[in-house]
Design a protein around this nucleic acid. Structure first.
Lengths: 200, 200
DNA sequence: CCTTTTCTGTAGTGGTCGATACACAATAAT
DNA sequence: ATTATTGTGTATCGACCACTACAGAAAAGG
């Protein structure tokens, strides 16, 4: 057992609240004071537990990707075909970005556009996350191409870029206030485009 | 003629530089010190000429929309068909978002995601700009529908939302570092989807 | 000339930022 | 009980934030 005074708060619960706050307000606009308020702890406790604002963000973003934010990626891989996977990816993202009671949009996209470029730790974290997401998409599509599934294009790399852009577009539109039904219809159109192209 | 001491700097040139700075770093991460440095003037001169950081941003954003940032909207309206208009809109945006020597992405999208929600002036400005852009797109598509042009869908409102989301997706992808050829191929795919759907 | 008007440069305002020094409290090991 | 170790609360730190008071400089009107 650890020796000193026990921590007076639940680390995981604190991470959840920090995630929510970063998700709602972005990285830069979430201050340490905001965090200590929401977490109900003093700043020295926060720094002792997490190290720095940047490190806390990375931990909170990890938690995001392991919980709500991870659903779309899982849905992509779980689907039997690339067509179903991409549709599930988009629909899960719509659900994530417009979840009632939850912050709108994507925690990572939001942070990407609101993080000062000199904060190397966070910038590197975000860059890696984006690369992993794009790689997952490309890998899934490449497997589908190898399996002979009909795809909207032979250029798998462009396909991955295109559907990744769809996700980012949904994230921004959600932040701008687009409702769930509106985004769902946007996805309907995207998938109709897939079908029309894949059928040729 | 005005009576007092003449202004020691060119107001339009200062606005251009401010626009560039807001475009590069977003709203919140651009400080008054950054601006006075780039503009080569003292802060009292800045405040005398523009009023406040929020007002300066609005003026710089107006300038953006009247110069580079206005091209896509003009291209949309100038094209003979909705199909050509949407393609021109997307391609002009790709050019705008990846212009060599210019900041990447969209000044307005960037500001939307990096503006503190309590800055009512800027939030209202951005909201109005977005509404106008979406309205322009919807109006163009509605006219096309009335003219009997073949469209990917009968639901003009959803079409407008969909292609607006494309623009936002391109803006984010450009900020993330996607190159111009990559974004061009994304647009190729989007327009291929239009053709495949409109032909049915 | 002198007055009026307008802009500029210096030098700050109070406030908030992320991050900490330090004393003390609370536990475990000895 | 003593010591070692770790977390908490108070009370800051210097740096930076948007913004401005004030005095002097530069023009026009008289």
């Amino acid at each position: 057992m650890g020796r000193g005074r026990p921590r007076g708060f639940d680390r995981d619960e604190a991470l959840d609240r920090a995630m929510r706050l970063f998700w709602t307000r972005g990285y830069q606009d979430t201050s340490i004071a905001d965090l200590t308020d929401a977490l109900g702890i003093g700043s020295p406790s926060l720094y002792a537990a997490f190290g720095s604002k940047a490190a806390l963000f990375c931990a909170a973003a990890d938690r995001y990707q392991e919980s709500d934010g991870g659903r779309p990626g899982i849905a992509l891989l779980a689907a039997p075909t690339a067509r179903a996977g991409v549709e599930a990816l988009l629909r899960e993202n719509v659900a994530l970005f417009t979840h009632r009671g939850g912050p709108r949009g994507c925690l990572l996209t939001r942070a990407t556009l609101s993080c000062p470029p000199d904060d190397a730790t966070v910038v590197a974290y975000l860059e890696r996350s984006r690369r992993e997401r794009l790689t997952a998409l490309r890998t899934r599509l490449k497997a589908a191409a190898a399996a002979g599934e009909p795809l909207p294009s032979d250029d798998v790399d462009t396909l991955a870029q295109h559907y990744d852009a769809q996700v980012q577009g949904l994230a921004v539109r959600a932040l701008e206030g687009a409702t769930r039904p509106v985004l769902q219809r946007t996805v309907d159109l995207t998938m109709a485009g897939w079908d029309a192209l894949a059928a040729r």
